[in-house]
Simulated assay, not measured.
Amino acid sequence: MAKANKWFVYIIETKNGKLYTGITTDVERRFEEHKNDPKGAKFTKANPPKKIRFTEEHPDRSSASKREAQIKKLTRAQKLTLIKVS
Rank of each mutant, 00 (worst) to 15 (best):
S63W: 04
K79F: 09
Y20R: 02
L74H: 07
I83T: 05
Y10A: 04
K45H: 08
K42M: 07
K45S: 05
K18E: 15
H34K: 03
S65K: 13
F8W: 14
T81K: 15
H58T: 10
P49N: 07
S63P: 00
I23Y: 01
K79R: 15
K35G: 01
K84N: 15
F31V: 03
S63H: 09
H58P: 01
K18H: 11
A46D: 15
T55C: 09
K66L: 12
G17S: 06
A64L: 07
R67P: 00
I71W: 01
H34I: 00
E68A: 07
I23M: 02
R61H: 03
K42A: 13
L19S: 02
E28C: 01
F43I: 04
K79T: 09
R29C: 03
A77M: 10
A46P: 05
F43R: 11
T24A: 00
I83D: 08
I11G: 02
D60N: 14
E68V: 06
L80F: 04
T75S: 15
L80T: 00
L74T: 09
M1L: 11
I52E: 07
I11C: 06
P59W: 05
E56T: 05
K66G: 07
I11A: 02
S65Q: 13
A2M: 10
P48Q: 09
Q78R: 14
N5Y: 01
T25V: 03
N36G: 03
W7A: 04
F54H: 11
K45G: 04
G22W: 01
T25W: 00
K66I: 10
V9C: 06
Y20I: 01
